[in-house]
C-alpha cells in the first residue's frame, strides 16, 4: 500500500523534475550567448513616459564587464526601473539562488516562446517571482517580468538586431507599475497657480521606459577604472 502510494507521488512529480531540467537547459543556452560577451560599451537613448514625470529622452553610455561590473554614464538625468536590465543577468548567473520551471508557451512578437517561471530560493529577498519568455529556437529572451515586494511588477520586452548573436537587445521596453506618487507639499510651491493642476486627473497606473541601444562595442576591453566612481 505504502509502496504504491510512493510510486504515485514519484510518478506525479516526474513531469516537474523534467520541466526543471528543461528550464535550466533553456536558461543556460540563453545565458551562453550572454557569456560570450566579456565586455561591451553601448550608446543608449532612454525615453521615459512616467505618470507625474515630464522628461526628455536622455543619451547615455553603458559599460559592462564580466562578471558583473556595470556603469551608466549620462550627462543628464535618466530614469530607469529600479530593477533595471543589469539585475536580471546578475540574478540568473547564480544558479543556486533560484528554481526555474517551464510553465507554458506564449506567442510574443509573433514568436512562440517558452514561459519560464523562476522562483528565488531565499523567500525573504525582495524578488518574489520572475517570469521569462524565451524563444527556444534562437535562445533569446523576448520578455521578462519581475515581481518584487517593494517595487511591484516590472516587465520588459526585448527587440534584437545587430547583436542578436550575443543576446544583446537593440531595444528594451520596460513597463513599470507606478504607485500613486506623493509630491512633498512644502517643496512644490506653485503659489502662482490660479487654475487647478493636473493632480486631480486620474493618472495611468503604468509607466513606460524605452531604451534604444546603438553602436555596441563588444569585447574590446574596458579598463576597470571606468567602473570606479
Amino acid at each position: 500500500m505504502i509502496s504504491r502510494f510512493l510510486t504515485l507521488i514519484l510518478l506525479g512529480c516526474l513531469p516537474v523534475f523534467a520541466a526543471a531540467q528543461d528550464a535550466t537547459a533553456i536558461l543556460e543556452q540563453m545565458m551562453a550567448k550572454w557569456n560570450r560577451v566579456k565586455d561591451y560599451a553601448v550608446q543608449v537613448n532612454i525615453k521615459s513616459e512616467i505618470p507625474l514625470i515630464k522628461s526628455f529622452p536622455v543619451k547615455a553610455t553603458i559599460y559592462f564587464k564580466q562578471k558583473d561590473q556595470f556603469k551608466m554614464l549620462s550627462k543628464g538625468i535618466a530614469i530607469l526601473p529600479k530593477q533595471n536590465f543589469n539585475e536580471l543577468p546578475k540574478f540568473l548567473r547564480d544558479k543556486n539562488s533560484y528554481t526555474a520551471l517551464i510553465t507554458g508557451t506564449e506567442v510574443i512578437q509573433t514568436q512562440k516562446t517558452t514561459v519560464l517561471t523562476v522562483l528565488p530560493i531565499d523567500d525573504s529577498g525582495d524578488l518574489v517571482l520572475l517570469k521569462l519568455w524565451i524563444d527556444p529556437k534562437t535562445d533569446l529572451l523576448l520578455k521578462s517580468q519581475s515581481t518584487t515586494r517593494s517595487n511591484g511588477t516590472i516587465s520588459a520586452n526585448y527587440e534584437y538586431g545587430s547583436q542578436i548573436a550575443f543576446g544583446l537587445p537593440d531595444k528594451m521596453i520596460f513597463t513599470v507599475e507606478v504607485k500613486k506618487f506623493k509630491i512633498p507639499k512644502g517643496l512644490a510651491t506653485d503659489i502662482n497657480r490660479t487654475s487647478s493642476s493636473d493632480t486631480g486627473k486620474p493618472s495611468p497606473k503604468n509607466g513606460k521606459i524605452t531604451i534604444t541601444f546603438a553602436d555596441y562595442q563588444l569585447n574590446k576591453g574596458i579598463k576597470d577604472e571606468v567602473f570606479r566612481n
Binding site: A78, I79, K82
Partner: peptide, 12 residues
C-alpha cells in the same frame, strides 16, 4: 516617493 519604483541616474 518615485524611487520606490524608479531610479534616477545622473547628477541630480
Amino acid at each position: 516617493s518615485f524611487e520606490q519604483t524608479l531610479s534616477f541616474q545622473g547628477t541630480l
